[in-house]
Nucleic acid binder design. Sequence first.
DNA 1: TTGAAAGCGCTAACAG
DNA 2: CTGTTAGCGCTTTCAA
Lengths: 339, 339
Amino acid sequence: MEKGKRHISLKDLALEIGVSISTVSRALNNHPDISPEVTRRIQKLAAEMNYTPNPLAMGLLKQATRMIGVIVPDLVTHFYSSIISGIEEVAEEKGYYILIASSNETLKKEIISVRNMLNTRVEGLIVCLSQETKSYEHFDRLIKNDIPLVFFDRVCRINEVPSVVVNNVDAAKKITRHFYKNGFRRIGYIAGPNHLNISQERAEGYLSGLQSCGIEFNPELLVQCNMSSKDATRATGRLLDLPQKPDAIFGINDTVAFAAMKEIKRRGLRIPEDIALVGFTDEFHATVVDPPLTSITHPTFEIGQAAARLFFNQIENPESEPEQVVLNTKLVVRKSSVK
Amino acid sequence: MEKGKRHISLKDLALEIGVSISTVSRALNNHPDISPEVTRRIQKLAAEMNYTPNPLAMGLLKQATRMIGVIVPDLVTHFYSSIISGIEEVAEEKGYYILIASSNETLKKEIISVRNMLNTRVEGLIVCLSQETKSYEHFDRLIKNDIPLVFFDRVCRINEVPSVVVNNVDAAKKITRHFYKNGFRRIGYIAGPNHLNISQERAEGYLSGLQSCGIEFNPELLVQCNMSSKDATRATGRLLDLPQKPDAIFGINDTVAFAAMKEIKRRGLRIPEDIALVGFTDEFHATVVDPPLTSITHPTFEIGQAAARLFFNQIENPESEPEQVVLNTKLVVRKSSVK
DNA sequence: TTGAAAGCGCTAACAG
DNA sequence: CTGTTAGCGCTTTCAA
């Protein structure tokens, strides 16, 4: 093999053995036409020379790259990286690679990422919408051309696009009722932007939970933030500044819950004695903080697996109807919400 | 565009305008030979039809995929995901994509990942060794064929392969001296596997720190673990079971530090009153736990950026000597180590 | 100023 | 049983 040549090709093998390229190709694919003897020799040489088919050539030929584009709001949150692990596991089984991009929670970067990934010829996308995303035209091209697409967690167009979500309404309701059962009555909720399904659905569960406990909804106790740490801290502040403070708070996600925890502590209030706190988080973070955080824990790895399965379902059954997978969350009670 | 056709090609444009494929190619590359008029028409049509060059075809032709393989011990630790963000940022500037794989801290998966990524024709690899890795033959093929390779954090073959590390010796020494200055004398260290440079170097800094404070090294106070949560908990237990417990402990990384923190608390000991604790962690986690953890914080994003830059340096200057970038860490003092 | 042809690595239809 | 040819999308000589 000449210097600088990093991968060998069918041609190299053919030259070496003195047969044609197609014979080599067939031999390696165990085509029955080729004589056992020749097949054996070719396969032996291929193994010795570390031959592996060039995916670029295969991709060109078959118009299939075996790559999935994954776009998440950020890479550094455990929630997303754990979901990505789940996607990767299923993708690997199928011999697919994943290409990861982060929207940094901005619509602009999300649009660019969608375009870049399509340009790279991924076979489709698995996406969690950015916090800013409330128009969805950048997915039109995928939908129109039947390019596989799956949304998870923050979703849209659920009638056209398969998606994976958790039972947000039910989960928020469970939190509210848990507070009630533990004697809390002024229950606050720190929501995210209104256009996100997760924010809406959790608000809905919150309201329904209050109602089922016979508590009247007090609009002062529902505050919004953009889900950044900073804004979540401010939102927490607004709750704590109320003439009648809440005695319990739940936050829409990890970032919000931790920001709330820090702010509550910073003001010298105790959790759960002065204010109970519950989050929507993942297993890991909930146990590392102090006090351990009662929370709805997301089955993150499973979310990723389910999203990948929906993706391959589209690859394998292009005509199938968009399906929505709803995964169950668990309310895990820890110290932060029980006096 | 016929149905099912997801991307248009030079051929489509050529057919549409009625010129040859090569003319289209030249026009799009602003080749001076093509008449301005034709060039204009072609570029206009290309824009309208959303033409983007097929990277598979380009890759085949140029033998360059513009993809970098990144292999990390795991995906879900903030330390790694943050480093990946840094790599991604630089890669994006250069128009490269990154392909991510996790070794799950096993040598077996690391070897498979290296092979898979090469098979995918990445242009090179950026790697953090798995915890198990103490033989390095699986990188031979890269080194021999001058395929760009960069190690970070856990490194090997530093004379042959460019790498990015932090000033481990100095950092561990700083921790030890910090303990001393704050009145702690029985200082324990929970190390990782001996073959890892980070473990060795931090042990070296620990010893040198002790010496510079005039404390005699007590082998009982240096325990090892495999850096899993479970084993770190056991290692902490061994320190706490000593007839003469340490009054201060530092752990080799995030996982170890948090496991130690949980175990110390579980036994009813207070931090820092009974035992002071310092970790090697990242900014985020150190502040979310309670008490806030004094720690050497890694410049994770910068580690990623530096690794990517070393990578591109190899692409652009194949003959350059392997360089080692050493980044500085900071000791950030928080409650966990000050009585 | 433009077109034709070759070649990157591979498979598959068609010929022997 | 094996070789030849064409073509996936693109760039780049070489010819005109």
